[in-house]
């Protein structure tokens, strides 16, 4: 049933699906980065590490506590979010008065510690995480075979992304958040506790990374280095999209994932650098990024 359209079309759709899945992770991660950057003016270098911690939390819960995929989908982001809140409270909050680059350097150090620690305890070989029973198997779409779990990942991350967009752009809390991004002092004068909002934003942003980690665990293997290679690409995605808009981050993430998949079919050698080449082109034509505002 898989050879309905012949090999090339099959390979094309397969790679496009893979690209779409990668794109979902780019979108989830760059969304978290954009939310954090908007509120804290910090580029969270530890984002990839938190993604890895999310995957590991799910794996550890399954191995040692017998907690399965569905509870982990909720619990692991919670654990990662709490970790982020502790980090923000104890360290990041001391740096807001300084140059923004110090936030980048601090989270870089944290990323090294997290990744180095997990590598020390678990080694570099990947640990498999089983696909939950409900999502095994797949659908024959006529032109291609779609594994259920992969379809679920794309849908779940789209729902989360759009939910975040709705919460920020369309709700009262989101309005406070946007207002505090523009002018924290004024918002605080209106009696809104801005420091708590900042902490919660950071917690939420890294929880998104943790959620992406759990979603990724059954597809890629759980590996201490899974986040560090991803984060650099996500940075490029953020530069391409510009951090001005939430929808921009989502669209750019998905689009670049698809494009990467397409490159794998057309010219596989370039697939690992295509995102960076596009970043260079965007910088030449529209330095503020596709959805960014010129400042």
């Amino acid at each position: 049933m898989v050879t309905l359209f012949g090999i090339p079309a099959q390979a094309l759709f397969g790679q496009l699906l893979l690209g779409l899945i990668n794109g979902s992770f780019y979108a989830l991660l760059s969304l978290g980065l954009a939310v954090i950057f908007g509120m804290l003016n910090v580029i969270n270098f530890a984002h990839g590490a938190f993604y890895m911690v999310g995957a590991f939390t799910a794996w550890l819960m399954l191995q040692h506590l017998g907690i399965g995929y569905w509870p982990a989908l909720l619990l692991a982001p919670l654990v990662v979010g709490l970790l982020g809140i502790v980090l923000e409270k104890t360290m990041l909050s001391r740096l807001y008065k300084l140059d923004h680059l110090y936030g980048l350097l601090l989270t870089f150090g944290v990323a090294l510690m997290l990744e180095g620690g997990f590598r020390h305890w678990f080694g570099v070989s990947g640990m498999p995480y089983p696909i939950p029973a409900e999502l095994r198997g797949g659908q024959n779409l006529g032109f291609m075979f779609l594994p259920n779990y992969r379809g679920w990942v794309v849908i779940a991350s789209l729902v989360v992304c759009l939910g975040t967009w709705y919460a920020i752009e369309r709700t009262r809390l989101g309005a406070y958040l946007r207002a505090a991004t523009e002018n924290p002092v004024l918002v605080q004068a209106f009696g809104i506790n801005v420091p708590v909002m900042v902490t919660a934003t950071y917690g939420f942003g890294v929880a998104l990374a943790g959620l992406a980690g759990v979603l990724a665990a059954p597809i890629y293997q759980v590996n201490p280095l899974m986040g560090s290679n991803l984060i650099v690409i996500v940075f490029a995605v953020v530069v391409i999209g510009g951090m001005g808009s939430i929808l921009g981050a989502i669209v750019t993430g998905l689009g670049l994932g698809l494009l990467e998949g397409l490159t794998k079919v057309v010219y596989p050698e370039a697939s690992s650098i295509v995102v960076f080449v596009i970043m260079a082109i965007v910088l030449l034509i529209k330095p503020a990024g596709l959805f960014g505002r010129e400042r």
Binding site: L105, L106, F108, G109, V110, A111, L112, M113, L114, E115, G116, G117, R119, H120
Partner: peptide
């Protein structure tokens, strides 16, 4: 990396 990160 843990030590380097901590110094950072």
């Amino acid at each position: 990396p843990v030590v380097i990160g901590a110094i950072f």
